[in-house]
Each structure stands twice: as C-alpha cells, then as structure tokens.
Design a protein around this nucleic acid. Structure first.
Length: 556
RNA sequence: UGGCCCGUGGUGUAACGGUAGCACUGCAGAUUUUGGUUCUGUAUGUUAAGGUUCGAAUCCUUACGGGCCAACCA
C-alpha cells in the first residue's frame, strides 16, 4: 500500500474542518468584502484566492460583498473594476451583494439595540469624543450623554435619520465600556450623519453605519460561516462578537490572517492612489503596479497569480514575500504555455555575404519545446539579418560564446555562420557585420561537423515586423520602500520603464492580438499591450528569462 | 506605564510531545540548436533562559524582538 502523505492544512482550514466535523456547520459560506474605494492589488488576490478557494475546497460558496458604508470615499468605477478583477482571476461568486443592501435591516436592528439600552445618541463633537476616549494606557471617561433615556435616544435617532440634524452634530454610540483595555470597546460609534450621495442607495440615507457595526450584521444576515479578514481587525473581533450577540444573529465567526507584503513595492491603497494621482505611473493598470489590473496588463496570467497565492501560504505572522517568487510563478506558467518567437530588441545588421541577394529560404522552428503538440512554424532566412547587439563582441571576455571576429555561431533553427568582417562608423562603433553561412550546416541536416557553443536568435531584415517594446523593471529600487518615514516616493526606480521604439520581430508576430503572450527567445516573456493599434504593435516585457550569462558577466 | 497577536535557514511555509521537511533565492555541476527548461548536489534555521517530560520547535514561566489598537475610515 502506498502511503499518501496528506497535504498539511493552514490554520483556517483546520478550523473549518473542525467545524464541519463537529457539525457546527454542514456547509460553509465565505465572503470577499472589498471597499470600492480603489483598485484591487495582489494582496487582495491573496484574500480572494483564500476565500473563494475555501468555498471551492469544502463544497461551499463565496459571496462578493461590497463594503460600501462610506459614500464619501467610494465610487461605482471601483465596483466595476473589482468585479472584473475577481472574474478574471477565475472565480465566481454565489451572490453579488452590498452592505448597503442591508441599510434598512441594520436600521431596524439598531432600534432594537437602542431599546435594549445598548446604544445612545452622543451630541459631543468628534474632538470631545476623542478626548474622553483615553489612550491605550489610560482609561476613558463616560460621555455626558451616555445615560440619557431610551425614549430620547429613539427620538434623536429618528431625527438623525430624517435629515433634521447637521453632519457632525451627533452620532449613535454603542454603550459598552469606557474603561476597557481594548480601545475599540470604548463606546464605539455605530452611526454617523453624512449628507452624501451613495452609488447604490442614492440619496435615501443621510446616516450610515460604521464598518465595525455593519460588517458583523451583514455577515450574519448572509449566514457567512467563516468571515476572514486581515490581522489589523483582530482587536475589533470583540465588537464583532458583541454586535452579533446583542442582536441575537447568526453566529458568524471572524478569523484573521496576515496580509501579504511584497518587497520592492508598496501595497497600501493610499500610496497606490498617490502614484496614480501624481502621474508617477500611467494609471491603476500601469504594468508596474502591483494591482491586479496592472499585473494583467503586464502579462501575468490568472493561473500564475493563483499559484502564487497558494505557494505563499496562510498564517498569522507578518511576512514579506520575495518578488522572485512571483516571477518564478509567471515564468513557470509561461514557459509551459507561451509560444516562442524570435525578436531582436537592440538590432545589429549582419550581411550573409555568400547568400544570394534575392533568395529566401524557410526554416522550420518549434513553437514550444515544452509542448510537442504545439508544432512548428516556417521562418524566412535571407541575406540580411538582424541579431542582438549583445550577441557580438570584438574583444570577448572568457566564456563568451557568441559571435566574435572570425568566430562561428549557430543561428537558431537555421545555419552556422562565421564572422568575416566588422564594419564600424567613424566613431569606431560596430554598425554591421559581414558573415558567411556554412551551407551544409542547416538545422536538421547538418553535416558540417562544426559545433559552435552559441546559438543566437535572429530576424530576416526584409521580412521583419516592426514593433515598440516597453521594458519594465521593478517600480522601486529598494526592498522596503515603505520603511522609515513616508519617503517611499524617493525610492522610485527611474529606470522602471525603458521604451524601445523599434524592435524587429519575425513575421508570425504580425497577427498577434492584444493580451497574447510570447516568449521572445533568449529575451524574456512579452505580451501585446492594450495600447496596440493596427498600425503600431506594442509589447510589454512581463519578465526576463533567468539569465546565467548576465550573472556571470556582472561578476566580471 | 495598558491590552491583544506573532517569533522555525536569506524569504515563505510544514512538522499538532518522538529523525526539523518542502518551496523560492544563493552557490556548484550535468544536459541543452534558448547561457531558457530539465536534472543533480550544496549552504544557511527552531530568539534566549529556566521549567515539565524518557523525550520539547511543539506544553508552562520569564525575558527579548516584531506587529496591531487612541477616524464620525475600512
């Protein structure tokens, strides 16, 4: 009998399996609760994969619920982008919901809370409330309005709802414990007045519940079994439980896990928003952004992001994931799935001097060595070719096995050539190379007996497709741009985007469509950018290939 | 000077009182018509001190380190 080692569970899965086993629940229901006040980033992707993944794994479901309790900061634009991103990641929600769907229910429940004497209207100013709140190390003091009669609370709450009170003039507070060591429990604000237009409810309401109050109620009304959020909400859990208990609702349980941190980038919505607003990037979907839309435009696939989320795991300790893991995940996917193409990014012209000027020969090159069923394509070879400037050196260092004066090299899928003559301009810069091809060296029928160490990619000049290339690198030049004071913007990598206005690709690239991904042989993975037009093909570099030579050369 | 949470190689994450494992990264080598892929090898770890136990990364205590908490934000 083969012993099957069962995959270890993360702590949330353990809780769920335990709940299922003990029959606390017969099925599970999770939710992904974004606030529509910005675009989703890869940290949200972690949460999405967790919540939807759990639903899938345990045969339950997951709701998408917009946490839209603050109309001042939220917008329908974000609602739409969030839906698009979740779908693109490959998940389907059971129900599309909004916390605002429950505004009536929450209002009714609140009446019950007030009648129980568990909430009161406080007419103190925000400053007064803050002053009486105390500090983490000193207790708070009761508000002078704390013990007003229930009937008065009811009447004032009614007035508040009817729009008879000015913004900031009063709030509804829970009556819990002003001396609690947990600041969250010092009579938290439940409702505030905001005369703001809401993207879902329009102008129906001028009072809006706070997150801490609306969230447990929303969870409970949906009968969410496991309400998963990030660690900073841990201290809010007693309030979450208090709300459910006082209102006698479905016992949803909040569980917290550590949010994702990635090095060489920033992850807070506020900072990402600043980058966008200050035009430090081209938008939320700039390919350098850690947003889901940015990664999508960069050429990351949903599968690679899901794999990444799986590999980083779920735990409660703070973590900083190395971007190299993200890069590993996309390379792994694209290596297996992206068709290979040849494209010369920094061209150097070579003349095959013993090749007839008008002759074109087609050579057959595999589309993907990782997939035999991907087949081959025909690539034209002629007397004028482009190769990469880096692939020729007049005075090569040791272990350089590309083209050198008098040296030989294999042109991928075609012939071996020998460099016969180096042509320079008046400044001494190499501008062209005269080479001879070895006629009996054609790939697949090579009888030359030669074994060059180097194999170069190339493009026939007269058949080349021209395109623009955007070479992306990490947005920040330091590992922790967030460290220290708010000076993260000073760590921006000025070279995070280099545009190559004219690159030469093999003819098959002509029909490439937006979003298509390729491996440009020896250069990296690229995808067709959404800015492309019929007249101008634009590629984004998703990620480079691992480059052993670059490493060696850098060492000297 | 408060409360809560968390400390396992460089980075993540397992081991649920019984041989500290896996992945990424690094390094070295093999293979290769991509200096890619693949394969092999290798380096680095239980924060510390006590205690319980035949046996502790795991349980207890203390210390140390990190994080969170004082929006009418989420």
């Amino acid at each position: 009998m083969e012993e099957i080692k069962k995959e270890s569970l993360n702590f949330i899965e353990e809780i769920i399996e335990n709940d299922l086993k003990r029959k606390k629940h017969t099925t599970i229901l999770t939710r992904f609760p974004p606030e529509p006040n910005g675009y989703l980033h890869i940290g949200h992707a972690k949460s999405i994969c967790l919540n939807f993944g759990l639903g899938l794994k345990y045969g339950g479901q997951t709701n998408l619920r917009f946490d839209d309790t603050n109309p001042a900061k939220e917008d329908i634009e974000y609602v739409n982008s969030i839906k698009e991103d979740v779908k693109w990641l490959g998940f389907e929600w059971a129900r599309e919901l909004y916390a605002s769907n429950y505004f009536d229910a929450i209002y009714t429940l609140t009446l019950k809370l007030i009648k129980k004497g568990k909430a009161y209207i406080d007419e103190s100013s925000a400053e007064q409330i803050a002053a009486l709140k105390g500090t983490p190390t000193s207790v708070g003091k009761d508000s002078p309005f704390r013990n007003r009669p229930i009937s008065e609370n009811l009447a004032l709450f009614e007035k508040m709802k009817n729009g008879d009170c000015a913004e900031g003039s009063m709030v509804l507070r829970a009556k819990i414990d002003m001396s609690s060591p947990n600041m969250i429990l010092r009579d938290p604000v439940l409702y505030r007045i905001k005369f703001a237009h809401h993207h879902q409810t329009g102008d129906k309401w001028c009072i809006y519940p706070m997150y801490d109050y609306a969230h447990p109620i929303s969870d409970a009304l949906e009968e969410i079994t496991h309400s998963i959020c990030t660690l900073e909400f841990e201290v809010h859990r007693p309030l979450y439980d208090w709300t459910i208990a006082e209102l006698e609702l479905f016992p949803s349980r909040q569980i917290e896990f550590a949010r994702l941190n990635l090095n060489y980038t920033v992850m807070s919505k506020r900072k990402l928003m600043e980058l966008v607003k200050n035009n430090l990037v081209s938008g939320w979907d700039d390919p350098r952004m850690p947003t889901i839309s940015g990664l999508r435009r960069r050429g990351y696939t949903p599968a690679s992001l899901r794999e990444f989320a799986h590999r980083i795991g779920i735990a409660k300790r703070d973590n900083v994931i190395d971007v190299s893991l993200l890069e590993f995940c996309i390379r792994e996917d694209l290596n297996k799935n992206a068709p290979r193409m040849m494209a010369v990014l920094n061209p150097l012209k070579i003349n095959i001097i013993n090749w007839l000027k008008d002759r074109t020969e087609y050579v057959s090159i595999e589309n993907n060595p990782e997939q035999s069923e991907a087949g081959h394509r025909e690539v034209p070879f002629s007397n004028e070719l482009w190769i990469e400037q880096d692939d020729f050196m007049e005075n090569p260092p040791k272990k350089y096995f590309r083209l050198t004066p008098g040296g030989i090299v294999r042109l991928k899928g075609a012939y071996i050539i020998r460099c016969k003559n180096v042509i320079k301009d008046f400044e001494g810069k190499v501008v062209e190379l005269d080479c001879e091809y070895i006629s009996e060296s054609r790939s697949g029928r090579d009888t030359s007996g030669l074994h060059p160490k180097g194999v170069l990619h190339w493009v026939s000049a007269k058949h080349a497709v021209e395109a623009q290339c955007r070479m992306y690198d990490r947005l920040f030049k330091v590992e922790s741009p967030d460290a220290g004071d708010g000076a993260y913007k000073t760590h921006l990598n000025q070279d995070s985007l280099k545009t190559l206005p004219k690159i030469y690709g093999e003819p098959a690239l002509k029909t490439a469509q937006k979003g298509d991904t390729f491996q440009f042989l020896r250069n990296g993975y690229f995808c067709v950018d959404t800015d492309s037009t019929d007249n101008q093909l634009i590629f984004n570099r998703t990620v480079t290939l691992k480059d052993a030579w670059a490493k060696l050369a850098a060492k000297g």
